[in-house]
Design a protein around this nucleic acid. Sequence first.
DNA 1: TCGGTGACCAGTAATCGTTCCTATTCGCGA
DNA 2: TCGCGAATAGGAACGATTACTGGTCACCGA
Lengths: 143, 143
Amino acid sequence: MGGTQERDIRERFRRSGYTLTSQRKAVLEALGESRGHPSAEDVYLLVKKKNPRVALGTVYQALSVLEEIGVIGAKHWSESPTRYDLNVDPHLDIRCLGCGEVSEIPGVDLGDLEDRLRGATPYEVTRAAVVVEGLCPACRAAG
Amino acid sequence: MGGTQERDIRERFRRSGYTLTSQRKAVLEALGESRGHPSAEDVYLLVKKKNPRVALGTVYQALSVLEEIGVIGAKHWSESPTRYDLNVDPHLDIRCLGCGEVSEIPGVDLGDLEDRLRGATPYEVTRAAVVVEGLCPACRAAG
DNA sequence: TCGGTGACCAGTAATCGTTCCTATTCGCGA
DNA sequence: TCGCGAATAGGAACGATTACTGGTCACCGA
Ligand SMILES: [Mn+2]
Ligand SMILES: [Mn+2]
Ligand SMILES: [Zn+2]
Ligand SMILES: [Zn+2]
């Protein structure tokens, strides 16, 4: 399931040729602590608590290689910075237009959507993502 | 179908309280000329050909009200500026990762996806969009 | 264990798309 | 025709992200 453990992560780094530095470890740990879908800035602030010398650019670069080697996922909404996720299994996330919180939507199957896309366009389809927005219960209550 | 005509547009402006200015008309015309899915910058360059005094900010503002009153549509990809579209019917568009071209994917039905989303999250679902990326035939050939 | 070397990092500047600001102009309604 | 709120031009500011550069570190091999 979701929990990619230390062993696996080291292996992914080794195979990719990237090195597992303390900064990259710290970014990964911050992502675990945040228990959600933090932005690069969120991760930066968490990492800085333990090591005040890290640079924001380093966090961006770490997130980028972690995503590239498949250890974390990244999702984009139009009115928010990119959100990162330890959950790399295919799943949907919804973002609240009120407070910006992102949560997972379990149990929705897209079926053969990608296949149908491939059949309907001469393009080679690389990626299809469903971007969902709404209002969380708290923001809905607050009107 | 797609072609929202002059009459309808005037009516939408009247009801919304916005005024149909020459700049807004020009933006709409540019969108018609461009025959595609131009960015704000693309629209700006087209509008400027006929009226070199328009400001880029005005184009952004015009696009925003045109979208608000339902005359045009806007779509977002993560690695591209917002693209605008005269086609306001629900449909899918794919963006080429090579050249940035956007084209429509006809005949794909999302079925009851939105309903299933609503059933699977406590959020009030406002919007669900499918973002599709790939390689156009030309870019695929150029490999 | 101890360098040597190429990858990495901190700090900062730059970029890009977009929005904001303000003085001026426009255009509709009385 | 006049008055006034809405819209615009021009340019500054903004937020997210990337690029650059000189110093630093991780790791492989002797
Ligand atoms: Mn998630
Ligand atoms: Mn379209
Ligand atoms: Zn909320
Ligand atoms: Zn292409």
